[in-house]
Design a protein around this nucleic acid. Sequence first.
DNA 1: TGGCACAAGATTGTCGACAATTTATTTCGA
DNA 2: TCGAAATAAATTGTCGACAATCTTGTGCCA
Lengths: 235, 235
Amino acid sequence: MPLNNPTLETPVTTADKVFDSILHAIVDGEIVSGSKISEPELAKHYQISRSTLREALNRLEKCHLIERKANVGSRVVECSIESLLEIYIVRESLEGMACRQAALHMSDNEIDDMKAMLEQHACAQDLKDGVAYYQEEGDLDFHYKVILGSHNQQLINILCGQLYHLVRMYRCQFGMNSPRAYRAFNEHSRIIEAISERDGELAELLMRRHIAASRKNIEAKILLSLSESKIDSAQ
Amino acid sequence: MPLNNPTLETPVTTADKVFDSILHAIVDGEIVSGSKISEPELAKHYQISRSTLREALNRLEKCHLIERKANVGSRVVECSIESLLEIYIVRESLEGMACRQAALHMSDNEIDDMKAMLEQHACAQDLKDGVAYYQEEGDLDFHYKVILGSHNQQLINILCGQLYHLVRMYRCQFGMNSPRAYRAFNEHSRIIEAISERDGELAELLMRRHIAASRKNIEAKILLSLSESKIDSAQ
DNA sequence: TGGCACAAGATTGTCGACAATTTATTTCGA
DNA sequence: TCGAAATAAATTGTCGACAATCTTGTGCCA
């Protein structure tokens, strides 16, 4: 849990805890994406007042996990392919820049940490059951560390504070355990290398390619499943 | 006002209106940056309850205009050079990508609109008193239209929904009416040209240079004023 | 039968009060 | 006199109730 939230301090108020609970529920799909949120119902479920619940909902809205309309109510965001691809576009741009900044501003210690982490991932990857781990947490950890390494608070806020909850949601809901694991690992290695050599331009380029490759992988999958469903419906 | 908020619907609830008021007050510096916000005081000032005020504060927090700590309270964000430069880094990255997407996805009508707007700016620039207008609203309009032209809702949310309030705040507080007006106009022209030719790569490159130039302009100014203050304090 | 107006129900927005926590002040001892 | 502990004041977090708005269901009329 703290690995997923290196920037957020531990929840202290009850609204914080409820926020964490609902966040988890939405990310894991327990609360169906696109569904309407009933304030009285949820408040009763968590044994809290509506005021406290609304406080939690406000934070969820900050993460773009729910949307509110005045006098109408809140809905969990709709998971769509279009939206997922849009997120990848944003990530390509922002994480690319974060990677460039990381190459410029990361401390030597931070870089050593990342190298150590990658070696650990390499080991975990040998153990075949570790592949899943790598793809789930390991990949997120890598991206998190690069983002934090940018030392740019605005970048960190946007990426870690809001966008990554969306990313995790899509990963869970669409079951995105792509066969890109070993390729991703190699790409991660090269990125760290570029950062290590303080080559910001190359680091940005590699990170953008890395994320664009994921996006294209998804697009290809979608197209495939679309054509398959066409065949299915044609039979 | 609607020009500055093309994505936000008109305020309907009282919390919305108070949000707009406080937003304006913070952007214009009436509420000093870095100052603590007293909930009882502000609530009394706007003649509303604390609940409603807190609702408004939550939206301000979404725009990164105020920061809250549990059991302590809210503060208006501190205006610092470091933070301003960080924002420019984010803008360079995001608006660059938005510009690339705009080149790919803008409709011909939208492009014609932008060209018309730029011609209007050219006229306004001839009238010397129009220069101020151009720099203030005109520049923002240009960037807004490119962002909207990306047709990427995630990009639009981040840039128009939150980041641009910060940008406007810094413009007001630091009185950033730089002598880059005519240069900026030419850069805008070339960007639209690239978009018009559907050259996404070039459009992104030009937008990134355009924003980077602004950033470097600020950095140079800062260095200059620093050395001047050194001379001043040496006398 | 279809569509519109109206009323009933449910949901969201707003309010004031109380509880929990933090901050400021006072008091006591070294 | 200075520092620390205890107390008082102020501020934030949470609660339940009421008002305003939207949604649903009913009945009337063409």
